[in-house]
């Protein structure tokens, strides 16, 4: 057997012809899947940014209740809105740079690799653009509340009750000093795990693929 025999067999291979599905049914199946995918992406886009907007709304409302003494809350709101802004920027960036499967093979693989490196960078530097601003906002909010309590304690409100109740104060301090940091550390660990278990293996796969595609002539 020589090479041209194999080529001839390849060209002559018969392609199985079977029952054809109703195109309308096929279209409905794919449209359902496409809508589900679009909804997932949309929800992710919206949730990440809107969480920050919601929290900023709550902080704004608290500031309004505190009156003029609550002015440092503006910095906390700016930090939270800044995080939301970063999420929005990331979403636009991802939509803009995403290549479809109709791109040339090399370009598609390289685009996927670049995106994975970017995701990895964001997750490994979560402290700088997410956790630190959140912590900063929390510190500002806590300090502002304490300041308002000292300057102008509102009667009959939870915060003044807190001030007069050592046990409640202790629980609050425990929450701020222990529970919240544990949540942040937990979030950090989950992200590290995502990088290790999902992003890096996929990155290695795609890099091997790229290396094979572009192996030196």
């Amino acid at each position: 057997m020589n090479w041209s025999d194999y080529e001839a067999v390849w060209k002559r291979q018969d392609l199985p012809v079977g029952a054809h599905a109703d195109f309308a049914v096929l279209k409905e199946t794919f449209e359902k899947k496409r809508r589900k995918l679009a909804a997932t992406l949309f929800a992710r886009d919206i949730l990440e940014a809107s969480a920050g907007i919601f929290v900023s709304g709550v902080l704004g409302y608290s500031w309004w209740h505190m009156g003029r003494e609550g002015w440092p809350m503006a910095f906390a709101i700016a930090l939270i809105l800044g995080i939301s802004g970063l999420f929005v920027r990331e979403r636009f960036r991802a939509h803009r740079l995403r290549l479809g499967t109709d791109a040339p093979l090399v370009a598609k693989v390289e685009a996927d690799i670049a995106e994975l490196y970017h995701q990895r960078h964001l997750l490994l530097h979560l402290w700088s653009w997410y956790l630190l601003p959140c912590t900063g906002a929390l510190v500002i909010v806590s300090a502002t509340m304490v300041r308002v309590l000292i300057i102008n304690p509102p009667p009959g409100v939870f915060l003044s009750a807190l001030w007069e109740n050592p046990a409640a104060l202790a629980w609050t301090i425990l929450y701020v000093a222990v529970v919240l940091p544990l949540c942040f550390c937990g979030g950090w660990k989950i992200n590290r795990r995502t990088v290790r278990k999902q992003i890096e293996p996929r990155l290695h796969e795609l890099e091997d693929l790229r290396r094979s595609l572009l192996s030196p002539v």
């Binding site: 054809h20 599905a21 096929l26 794919f30």
Partner: peptide, 8 residues
């Protein structure tokens, strides 16, 4: 219904 042809 989405098995367009029998591409076994």
């Amino acid at each position: 219904e989405a098995d367009v042809t029998r591409l076994a």
